[in-house]
Design a protein around this nucleic acid. Sequence first.
DNA 1: GATCTCACTTAGAAAGATAACA
DNA 2: TGTTATCTTTCTAAGTGAGATC
Length: 783
Amino acid sequence: MSSSSDEDIPLSKMARKITSNKSSKLKLEDSSDSEDDRTPLQNSKPTPATSYSEDDDDNDDDDDGPLLKRKRKASSTKSDKKPKVKKVKTKSSSTTAVKKEKSKSATKVKKEEPKEEVSSQVKTEAEAEAEDEDDTYKWWEQQDLDGEIKWESLEHNGVVFPPEYEPLPSNVKLYYDGKPVTLPKEAEEVAGFFAAMLESDHAKNPVFQKNFFSDFLLVLEESGGCKDADIREFSKCDFTKMFQHFEKQREMKKLTTSADKKRLKKEKEEFEEPYKWCLLNGRKEQVGNFRIEPPGLFRGRGAHPKTGKFKRRVQPEDVTLNLSKDAKIPDPPPGHQWGEIRHDNNVAWLAMWRENIANSVKYVRFSQNSSLKGISDFKKFEKARELKKYIDPIRKDYKQKLKSDLMIDRQIATATYLIDVFALRAGGEKSEEEADTVGCCSLRFEHIFLKPPNTVIFDFLGKDSIRFYQEVEVDTQVFKNLRIFKKSPKKPGDDLFDRLDPSILNKFFQSYLTGLTAKVFRTYNASKTMQDQIDLIENEGTVNEKVVKFNAANRAVAILCNHQRTVSKSHETGVQKISDKIEEMMWQKIRFKRMILQLDSKQKKKNPEYFQECQDMSKEEEQMIIERFIANEKEKLIKRHERELEKFKIEKATIKKEDQKDTLQKLKDDHKERLAKHAEASKMYKSELRSRKYDIKPNVTVEKLQQQVEKLSTRIQNTALNLKDKEDNSSVALGTSKMNYIDPRLTVMFSKKFNVPIEKLFTKTLREKFAWAVESADENWRF
DNA sequence: GATCTCACTTAGAAAGATAACA
DNA sequence: TGTTATCTTTCTAAGTGAGATC
């Protein structure tokens, strides 16, 4: 099938998640299914992986050999290169800044503000916030954003180091083989890191334990060893005393008065204030992570082979600072020197150091609301919007290439399909020293299961070891290709796309559009999905209802990108509580309806549907609800009384001695009275259940009862909606897509078009990060 | 062309702050 | 007013991709 109508179907819809209702299968491209295509995989003749001959159109010239078998190898550990200060390039621009779509003139170029000293006397955050909004640099009103250099001048105050280690009190010790032992403070610190997380999942992980312990022994040896015992076995170490000490400290911290907490917070803020800001081209901008990461145990995600290893303390000598040549070099901490000073204006970092786990580089960068971050965000979304113009020919092209005679082209086309339709990541190669996670190019034999005629089950761990599990229908030719890519002698452990890696794929993408890479597809499809979802929303209802609809659209994007979060521990009980509440409201509603019938039996004839639900709830169900309701209410009363007694104990001293007895007696009497009322009500409910006779007060009318029923109906509806939202959101993380994938101008457009305050959609941080979008998009903006 | 290095974005967990509830 | 649930921010791990180097 290669009809033109097929071209009209958006590709993102071509493959659908299979639900239990498979009614809407889309017929897709291709074709004359050959006899061979219907042959079960296990019966097909084994062929070498380097060539394939399924049917004629599947024949391959095989002039393109597979990539060298990709070994999962250890990364090299060192680079002693001297830093190079690159020549500053000043390229002419092509990117124009965000055009103001509002009536205000957008072309006015802002004058550079006078350079101010970045010193410990910089304004406080509150003062900075209070500054006139117009004083902030609106880079989006500039015309040229294309320069390659990152800054003309950069000044900052360096970084904040974590506090030195404070040894434990002498009575808090590690126990080895049942006896307390004294450790050198360096080793004690490492043992303490483990002890502090004794009850976490990490500490129960054998790999974590092993890595921690071997690093602990190393530090112990480096620092002079333990004189009290020959520590060799992890199983003989008892960290509980140390753990209890940290728990106690945590409890003490909780008890700090709020005034003290405030004071400590203020002191910390005052100390950190100078490090929070820098001067970028003479303008004050915020620094992001100005705190050097403290030492600790590496918490790798998933099955990381290095999890638990000791992350060493970073010294000033390990830190390289990056700033202008003429900028004042911040003083290193007393007795120390900076590792290196650089003046590289091709990069957007202020400081860096190398960590000891993977020997990778950590950077101190500008904050999310800085102009540099904003500009790169803006460019990212503009590139994704540019893809709009190319997406149709690209899709047409790769659909054709799915049947190419060249294996490499087929693999490229199939991978592009997966990236475009299922928003897979590129999937770069990983070393043995990392968790075994994959993306598109690194998918292996065992990560997909094929179910004829065209169903694929993906099951693999993606970034952060988050499981990607989807059962989907795919294009028939894609299905055929995947079957070829899995054909014998391929076996578990082998790469599905044995001739691909992200750089080959990205080179292919670049032939369509400069700067087009696998990740642009994710941004494009995410924002496109959001635009489509918003287009479906009716402009009606309350602000909160509109926010719920916005979140539902956001959720569609998060699901597309497979953004997940672990279900919170309290989720189950929370859901149960809400479900119980709904049942209780249903029971109350039915109760009111029965009262109506008792007052006026003719009502049933008038509107039998209205009273149908009175029959829907069985007596057993009702009894269960009533009993639970009674028990819950009683528990509430008891807890209330306990709190009152507790309060009385505390306030006793402030009450006159002669009044104390009376006050206590009153509390007890009140409680007794409430319990009596509760007992009476319980008795009434039970009697109602037996006799179906209701004790209705004389002032209660049919109209009043109807009003009550109406109120309850609305409450039930709202609570059910909340419950559904809670369930749907329990494992989906909305934040990641809002922050990284959905063009913020879509959110701003929604806010303006639907009259929803932006504060309801973006937190303060996001409003600052996306200030450029908030100020430039209007209600008609489209992705 | 494979591999390595560097600079950047993207990611979920954990900590902290705030709102809702009893 | 204290407790609990939820929202927001911070932290830092884990990706992508360009360009240098072997």
